[in-house]
């Protein structure tokens, strides 16, 4: 867990969130904590409760139980004040087709209490950030899907909010727009708390600093990207001679050995495995070590393991 989360109140904090659609439990006992500087990737298979959770966090849906605090403000008791700190881009951009782009952005900024003196500058900033100047005076119903998607993102940040919630932010964008949007999200995430829900695992890997996986409405995995995803948990080794598997298994930190052939073995171990004893053993036993390749588990591996029930992780 992020140290600062334990010490100070997070910008977005949800505790014990629950929601039920009649008899079906959509979200249960869900905790989310997000600090300025965090970009949290919210993952889960279809029907895991991601959209329901985002709707609750954005104030569009009232939780059955639990509490949401935005910048220290309770979303129930001080709903309007809390939502003033929020920028939300739903999966389907909330656009008015009969308005022009600039007009729409001015309206959304005014709704979020941007003062008249700051209005023009705020709109100009997002028009520039999202490359929308060329269509600023165009009606929204004449825009392509990519422009609409970018406009949906622009309205979420026009008022410079502290907490930004983005549902599938790069859906419908072309590769160069995806790259540009990821850069923008990373820039936003330096000073603000950003939560992204996406089906695209590579996008979460490329953009987020933390990841949380949801399944059946519960959080089943939560970790910082650099802690859990980049630390190798297996190492591929190959020798000129056939090694002794029992001797390899006895090495400190080794959980199991998975022979791929006589001379190629995958060693499963904890994160932070020290390879020096392995190299020393190989040298002493004259096995002739020719390959020592740490294997990093990608987000996709973790996601598949969790959602198929192969592995249990701490939530």
């Amino acid at each position: 867990m992020h140290n600062s989360i334990m010490n100070t109140e997070a910008d977005l904090q949800a505790r014990g969130l629950c929601y039920r659609y009649e008899d079906k439990i959509a979200v249960e006992a869900l905790d989310i904590s997000l600090q300025a500087g965090d970009i949290l990737g919210f993952l889960g298979p279809n029907g895991a409760g991601k959209t329901t959770t985002l709707n609750m966090l954005s104030g569009c849906l009232r939780p059955v139980a639990g509490q949401i605090r935005l910048c220290g403000l309770d979303m129930q008791r001080s709903a309007r004040q809390a939502r003033a700190h929020l920028g939300y881009a739903p999966e389907i951009p909330p656009l008015y087709p009969d308005l022009q782009v600039r007009e729409y952005l001015r309206f959304t900024a005014q709704l979020r209490r941007v003062t008249t003196s700051q209005l023009t500058a705020a709109v100009q900033r997002v028009l520039s950030d999202y490359d929308l100047q060329a269509v600023a005076h165009q009606r929204i119903d004449t825009l392509s899907k990519g422009y609409r998607q970018r406009l949906g993102l622009a309205q979420a940040i026009v008022h410079d909010p502290d907490v930004i919630i983005l549902d599938e932010p790069t859906d419908g964008l072309d590769p160069s727009q995806i790259r540009r949007t990821r850069e923008l999200i990373r820039t936003l995430g330096k000073k603000r708390a950003v939560l992204i829900s996406s089906h695209n695992l590579s996008e979460i890997e490329a953009t987020c600093t933390r990841v949380q996986i949801l399944q059946h409405g519960r959080s089943v995995y939560s970790a910082r990207m650099d802690d859990s995803l980049e630390a190798p948990v297996s190492t591929l080794v190959a020798f000129q001679q056939t090694p002794d598997l029992r001797a390899l298994s006895a090495l400190p930190g080794i959980a199991s050995c998975e022979p791929l052939s006589d001379k190629r073995i995958r060693l499963h171990h904890q994160a932070g495995f020290n390879t020096a004893p392995l190299v020393q053993l190989s040298s002493q036993s004259q096995w002739g070590l020719v390959l020592l390749q740490p294997e990093t588990r990608g987000l996709e591996d973790i996601f598949i393991d969790i959602t198929t029930g192969r592995t249990e992780y701490a939530a």
């Binding site: 569009c60 004040q81 939300y88 909330p94 709704l111 979020r112 209490r113």
Partner: peptide, 9 residues
């Protein structure tokens, strides 16, 4: 487009 109004202050 209702989420725009619902998530606004």
């Amino acid at each position: 487009s209702l989420p725009l109004l619902q998530s606004s202050p």
